[in-house]
């Protein structure tokens, strides 16, 4: 009787704490995901009631879909630039606002603000800046770099995407880095100082190794967010000029909903997921391995 009671007890406790969350997670993540995988084996057009089973045809179509691989390649390039710049700038900002500086909290808030603006609005604001304001500056100052709108050439539009992403995300990463920096115990710092460390050496050999976990988190967050980016892509360049900046998420969306090939689009979405998952998890595991405790 007692053991039965205890078991029931355990189940009860589990249901109280984890029941609602598990239910929600199952119904909005796991089940749709499994259903999504099922849809990759159908030639559904996204509208019709019938979802004809076609086996692996979508996977073959995906493998032969050159523009998809191109947009995935472009996304990789975008992730590479964005992740490096976001983390570099985020970390430098964090160093800046934890050092000796007047109005620290004002700067912290200021750098973080861009992250509070939604991606769509952010894209429209920057579109206006790139298309009109910078061109206007170019026309009155004669600076050749601003003569034409950046958004009307591929390299310019790509750079614009990276710049806007960096502007949006580095403030967020700065917050995490600040937490990491302030989390390094002062006794270790003092000990290092007594041993004759300079400021630079202290950052390099004491602080950085002790805040590795912040880097792991920030890299994970930026990698996943940049792979999945859609809103900024949509509102800033809309894939243009001439469809040259269509990143993977936008490509998948167009495939599924404009070209009405839901099955193929879904298959490509799964591939995008696998790519992101493998890269992000590898990064997290490698990062974890090098973490040290104070």
């Amino acid at each position: 009787m007692k053991t039965k009671c205890a078991k029931l007890n355990q189940v009860g406790t589990f249901l109280i704490f984890a029941g609602p969350a598990t239910l929600a997670f199952l119904s909005v993540v796991i089940i749709p995901f499994i259903y999504g995988v099922y849809l990759t084996f159908t030639s559904w057009d996204g509208l019709s009631k019938e979802k004809p089973f076609v086996g692996l045809a979508n996977y073959r179509a995906m493998a032969a879909d050159v523009p998809f691989w191109q947009s995935l390649g472009l996304t990789l390039l975008y992730v590479l630039f964005s992740v490096i710049l976001v983390n570099l700038i985020g970390f430098l900002l964090a160093l800046l606002v934890t050092g000796k500086l007047r109005g620290k909290s004002f700067f912290r808030a200021g750098f973080f603000t861009p992250n509070l603006i939604g991606g769509i609005i952010l894209g429209y604001i920057w579109q206006f800046i790139f298309n009109r304001i910078l061109v206007y500056i170019g026309s009155i100052s004669g600076l050749p770099i601003f003569q034409k709108s950046w958004l009307s050439s591929f390299s310019g539009a790509f750079a614009a995407l990276v710049i806007v992403t960096v502007w949006q995300l580095s403030g967020y990463m700065m917050l995490i880095y600040i937490a990491g920096l302030t989390g390094v115990p002062t006794d270790v710092r003092e000990a290092a100082k007594i041993d004759g460390c300079t400021e630079g050496q202290m950052t390099r050999y004491i602080v950085l190794p002790l805040m590795r976990s912040s880097f792991t988190i920030c890299l994970f967050l930026t990698i996943t967010r940049c792979f999945m980016v859609y809103d900024v892509n949509l509102s800033l360049t809309e894939g243009g000029p001439y469809g040259s900046t269509i990143l993977a998420a936008m490509y998948v969306f167009q495939k599924a909903f404009s070209a009405k090939q839901y099955g193929v689009g879904q298959t490509e979405a799964i591939v995008l997921f696998l790519f992101t998952a493998v890269i992000a998890v590898t990064q997290a595991v490698l990062g974890k391995r090098k973490e040290v405790a104070a």
Binding site: C5, L8, N9, V11, G12, T13, L15, G19, P20, L23
Partner: peptide, 15 residues
């Protein structure tokens, strides 16, 4: 404890 467990189960079941 038994009562609380039972209520929990009932609530979850109801949900």
């Amino acid at each position: 404890k038994l009562i609380s467990t039972v209520t929990a189960v009932v609530i979850t079941a109801a949900m």
